[in-house]
Simulated scan of single mutants.
Amino acid sequence: MLSITLKQLELFISVAETKSFSKTADLLAFSQPAVSSNISLLEEILHTELLDRTNKKKIEITEDGLLFYEKAKEILSSCYTLQDMSANRQDSNTVSIGAHNIPARYMVTDVMNYYRKAHNSTKFLLREGSNADIVDLLNQKKIDLGIVSQPISNSKFKSLPIFNDSISLALPNTPRYQCLLMKKPTLEEILLKETFIWDNSLNDVVSYYLEKLGYRKNDLNIIAEFNSEQLAKDSVIDGLGLAFLSKISLKCAIKSAEVLTYDIPEPPHRTIMVVYNQKTHLNNAGTAFMAFLNSGTFDFEKCYR
């Protein structure tokens, strides 16, 4: 016998409120087919139509759907209350954080270390993942705070910008590229003549920057693409080519002279933000840590410039 899941309830409530599968997919970080199939399965379990799909431009909720919507909200509300009660019984000195790959690897531990100098009883539980992973963890109330590198368009979440991560153009530190920089080439010469590594995690930011300069991704001689910033950086260090990379991620490689950088004009950036679910009650440690981040006590600009 098939059972109704809390995720199906959450998806149905969102579709009923937004009257759109695509908006629900964006809000809850699901694919549109996954949203549609979950709602169809829910209707199959209940043996009734919850949504009227005859108007493709705007989904309407049926009478049965309206009744189910009210009950579904009550059930989810009760579940969230139980989750909060359970969380409050856990160690009140623990802050659970989900962080996107770049801040997780290069920022969060610095902030934790600084914070614990004055709050040595605080413990941290850190999870690393994509921005979509962090949104999902926040929705499921499995973490207190999320640290992401792109805006989240969901009214349930409140965001606090903490740092603008600049994008740098990294080059292998080899005699060839040392000579290249000594010649002071223009950015146009570099873009059209050199070989590149493409970091797909920065695709939107770098593509937009290139478009402002009058170029497209296809104009570059890209010999390798990676979905991992670490692999892209390692490829530059190994001499495979140039890459647009996060300045934070390059900090140690620059300091150890593993890579060179070219000063690009008006470098693009992405905003690193702390987000939390407004429906989640933070414990004392989470509230104190959020207040610390909001106070500006930790100087991100000084630390990562």
Results as ranks from 00 to 15, higher is better:
residue 206 V to P: 00
residue 207 S to Q: 07
residue 208 Y to P: 00
residue 208 Y to T: 15
residue 208 Y to Q: 15
residue 208 Y to F: 09
residue 209 Y to F: 14
residue 209 Y to G: 06
residue 210 L to N: 06
residue 210 L to R: 04
residue 210 L to P: 10
residue 210 L to C: 10
residue 210 L to G: 08
residue 211 E to V: 02
residue 211 E to G: 02
residue 211 E to D: 09
residue 211 E to Y: 06
residue 213 L to W: 10
residue 214 G to V: 10
residue 214 G to R: 08
residue 214 G to W: 11
residue 215 Y to C: 12
residue 215 Y to E: 07
residue 215 Y to N: 05
residue 216 R to I: 07
residue 216 R to H: 12
residue 217 K to D: 06
residue 218 N to Q: 14
residue 219 D to C: 09
residue 219 D to Y: 10
residue 220 L to K: 09
residue 220 L to F: 13
residue 220 L to W: 13
residue 221 N to Y: 04
residue 221 N to M: 10
residue 222 I to R: 05
residue 222 I to Y: 05
residue 222 I to L: 10
residue 223 I to G: 04
residue 223 I to W: 06
residue 224 A to E: 15
residue 224 A to S: 13
residue 224 A to I: 10
residue 225 E to H: 05
residue 225 E to I: 08
residue 225 E to W: 08
residue 226 F to S: 15
residue 227 N to I: 08
residue 227 N to G: 12
residue 227 N to T: 14
residue 227 N to D: 15
residue 228 S to A: 03
residue 228 S to H: 06
residue 228 S to F: 04
residue 228 S to L: 09
residue 229 E to L: 06
residue 229 E to H: 14
residue 231 L to G: 01
residue 233 K to Q: 11
residue 233 K to D: 00
residue 234 D to S: 08
residue 235 S to P: 03
residue 235 S to T: 09
residue 235 S to V: 01
residue 236 V to R: 01
residue 237 I to R: 07
residue 238 D to S: 13
residue 238 D to L: 07
residue 239 G to C: 09
residue 239 G to K: 12
residue 239 G to A: 09
residue 240 L to A: 07
residue 240 L to P: 00
residue 241 G to N: 03
residue 241 G to L: 08
residue 241 G to W: 06
residue 243 A to N: 01
residue 243 A to F: 06
residue 243 A to R: 01
